[in-house]
Structures are given as C-alpha cells and as structure tokens.
C-alpha cells in the first residue's frame, strides 16, 4: 500500500466516522457504534501495557470499575459535575494501576503470574464493592438522569462523538508511543527484560508507568460507560466479563499495533452482533462466542488481523523489489 493510498483511506474513514450519525437511522446502530468505539478505546489502553509492554493483564476491570465508581460516587454522593468525573476517573484508574504495578512488578511477577494477580485484584475489588455501603453494595449505583451536555449526558449521538474523539486520541497516543523513547524501551522490555536492563533501561519503572497510563485510560472509559448507562454494579464494574472483552479486542486486532484494537473491536462486535441475530439473545451465548473466538484467534492467528495484513504485505515485498 502506498503512503498516498494509506492517507486517502484514513481520510475517508475519518469522514465516514464523522458522518455516521447523520446516516444511521436507528438508535440501535448509534449504540452499537458507541460500544464498538468504547472497546476500541479500552482495547488500546490494554494494548499499551499488554501489546507494547508484553504484560498481559486479566483484570483490566479493576481500572474500568474504579473509574466508573469514582465518577458515579462523586456525582451521587458529592454532587460533582460529571465532566470532572472524567479526570477523576483517570486519576483513580491511574492510581489503582500504579498501586497494582508497584506491588506486582516490585516482586518480579511476570507472565502467567502477573495475569493471575491482576485477575485476583479485580476480584478483591468486586467482593469489596459488593460488601461496602458507599458503592451501593450488590444493588449498585444509579446516576440521576439529567439530559444535556452540561451533565455529560448528551444523548447517543453526543456520546458517539465523545468516544470517537477518545478513539482518535488513543490512536494518536499509540502512534506517539511507537515513535518515542518510552515506547522503544517498553518494547525492548517486552522482548527481553535482561537485555534491556543491560542497556540502562529501568524495566520496573517503565512497567509501572505503562500500567498507570493504561489504568488511567481505562478509568476514563469506565466513566463514559457509567454516564451512558447511568448504572453500575459490582459485576458490571469488576466482573471478569469486562476484563475479557477488553483483552479480546487487541488480541483479535493485533497486539502492539496502532490500529489493532480498532480493527479488533469492529470485528468482534460485528461478529457478535451477527451471532446474536442467528442464535438469539439468550444469556451467556455471546460469551460462549467470545471464548471460542479467543481460542480460534490464538490457535490460527496469534498475531491478530493486523498481523495477517502485515504478513501479506511482507510477502509482497520481494515481488516489488
């Protein structure tokens, strides 16, 4: 693909994305697009830590739920404007990310152990959220309905544009990471921690920064979720379902690539919508689909769809050269 074609393609998709709400007739498709883009954004957050940093988290719900609860509690208990919930969610998600990273990386957890401990952290928070009063315990929290931009309840189309902006910001951020010292060192740590350390890279500090960043981004996603649905409870916030959906997105699309999470989220949600229409909307069925998809992807396309494109492009090189 030539640079010109690439740019044209990008421009066209940008225009299409901006014009989408004008042509989408039903609220259903706007909501579908919102969810797809929200998970493209969350998947990018996971991708920073898991794709570029090589640290697979099985508990990103920890950050998502913390962001969501922070904004919801600030609003219901302290009357904070939900717009301020966005930075608050980032702060809360980042702080929890930093703490989780400090604990697990300090003691040298990696690979499977890191995945297990993140899962356990999320579960601890789920149990706590179920038990303490200020999260509304098992009943959950309702955010009062106050439509309008002022209270960050701009309606489906407004939400669509907000999450679209977030996705663009996250794409830009991933591009920055690929072209910065931070990203170069992070990828070096992913590839070989000892070799990176020998070259003066402080792997521990980098990983903590990556998980804090990823946590902050994920926290913002949680805030948006709670503003859209106006409700949160412990299993929505901290349940394994969210963690799995977040990690599926970049794995399907392509780990450690800029567009992987976006591609992954579109494919995942389109396919799961299709599956829902064929098999009906029984509880659990879409997660069966997610589970099978995860197995199939890792089995046949471990580099994700972006990896498939890249492999194809590489195969073309000798012909052109």
């Amino acid at each position: 693909m030539s640079a010109w074609l690439q740019r044209a393609l990008l421009g066209a998709s940008l225009l299409a994305a901006l014009a989408f709400p004008l042509v989408a007739e039903s609220g259903f498709w706007i909501k579908f697009a919102f969810t797809t883009l929200l998970f493209a954004y969350l998947g990018q957050a996971w991708n920073i830590l898991g794709g570029y940093g090589g640290q697979f988290s099985f508990g990103h719900a920890l950050f998502f739920g913390t962001g969501a609860y922070a904004a919801a509690i600030a609003q219901t208990a302290f009357g904070l404007n939900p717009w301020l919930g966005l930075p608050l969610g980032a702060l809360a998600g980042g702080a929890v990310g930093w703490a989780a990273g400090y604990l697990s990386f300090r003691y040298g957890l990696r690979g499977s152990y890191f995945a297990l401990v993140t899962l356990a952290f999320a579960e601890v928070f789920r149990i706590l959220a179920n038990a303490v009063p200020f999260t509304g315990a098992g009943v959950g929290l309702f955010v009062p309905l106050q439509p309008g931009w002022a209270q960050l309840q701009p309606g489906p189309i407004g939400f669509y544009y907000i999450v679209l902006a977030l996705v663009f910001a996250s794409l830009w951020f991933a591009w920055r990471i690929e072209n910065s010292r931070f990203g170069a060192q992070l990828m070096a740590v992913r590839e070989n921690e000892a070799a990176a350390a020998a070259l003066g890279v402080d792997a521990y500090a980098l990983k903590v920064r990556a998980i804090a960043l990823s946590g902050a981004m994920t926290g913002v996603g949680g805030v948006l979720y709670v503003q859209f649905y106006l409700y949160i409870d412990p299993s929505l916030a901290y349940g394994p379902g969210i963690s799995v959906e977040i990690l599926l997105v970049p794995i399907i699309g392509g780990l450690g690539t800029i567009f992987g999470p976006l591609i992954g989220s579109i494919v995942l949600h389109a396919a799961s919508e299709l599956a829902r229409r064929i098999m009906g909307d029984a509880p659990g069925i879409h997660l069966v689909f997610y589970g099978v998809l995860l197995v199939v992807m890792v089995r046949f396309l471990p580099d994700g769809l972006a990896g498939l494109l890249r492999r194809k492009r590489k195969a073309e090189v000798p012909r052109n050269a």
């Binding site: 170069a184 060192q185 990828m187 070096a188 590839e191 070989n192 070799a195 020998a198 890279v201």
Partner: peptide, 14 residues
C-alpha cells in the same frame, strides 16, 4: 539476547 521482533536499527536505538 536480541529484541527479536524489533529491527536491527530499533535494537541498536534502544
């Protein structure tokens, strides 16, 4: 101990 997935240039740049 190369950074296998990175190019030679990117390896040295680290």
């Amino acid at each position: 101990q190369p950074f296998g997935a990175l190019s030679v240039r990117e390896n040295i740049a680290v």
